[in-house]
């Protein structure tokens, strides 16, 4: 019994080391989304392309969609854009949410870098962004065909992320739609 007690500090150390090791791979800036499992918030916003064009929640439904929050002031969005173009070419429906930006800058960006967006919402005051709980661009939401938010990625979407949870969930929900 007393012999075993000698190993107690070692066991405690191992436990603590394990806990801290897990913490290393945890990104503290990545918050849980309050919206996962809940319907995408209603909105009525102008399109980036023109003020006359308006879009509503209905345009989101019927297909599995990625909603990508982007802005021209956001540096990481630059890194992400090529991946979005690639996904769009694969047939992924991506809706853009241009967040706290100006229309000319956004239009120039799309002309220069290509437009992966199925449609692009213009949210200069960050109203829909607020309802979504956006706290920094880029953010990407996975919305299923019924308009329920299924996942949120804070930060750049790249090959690794698309191979991970976001892409897996997308493929799963897309397959469900095809089955029906």
């Amino acid at each position: 019994m007393n012999r075993l007690k000698l190993y107690l500090p070692l066991v405690l150390f191992a436990l603590l080391a394990g806990l801290l090791y897990r913490g290393l791979n945890n990104d503290p800036t990545e918050l849980p989304s309050a919206l996962v499992g809940k319907p995408f918030p209603a909105f009525q916003l102008e399109a980036v392309e023109s003020a006359e064009q308006r879009h509503q929640l209905a345009s989101l439904k019927g297909e599995v969609t990625l909603v990508n929050v982007w802005a021209t002031w956001c540096f990481a969005c630059r890194l992400e854009h090529a991946m979005l173009n690639q996904l769009a070419a694969q047939g992924v429906k991506i809706i853009g949410l241009n967040y706290k930006d100006t229309r000319p800058a956004a239009q120039r960006w799309l002309a220069e870098r290509g437009d992966p967006y199925w449609l692009n919402l213009f949210d200069p005051r960050g109203e829909l962004g607020f309802d979504l709980g956006v706290y920094g661009a880029p953010e990407t939401y996975l919305v299923d065909a019924e308009g329920i938010v299924r996942h949120r990625r804070v930060g750049v979407v790249d090959e690794r992320i698309w191979a991970g949870e976001l892409g897996q969930l997308y493929r799963r929900y897309a397959a469900q739609v095809q089955d029906e």
Binding site: L31, S33, A34, F130, D131, L132, G133, Y135
Partner: peptide, 8 residues
């Protein structure tokens, strides 16, 4: 605010 930004 919790509905949008979670309990965080």
């Amino acid at each position: 605010l919790v509905d949008r930004y979670s309990e965080f």
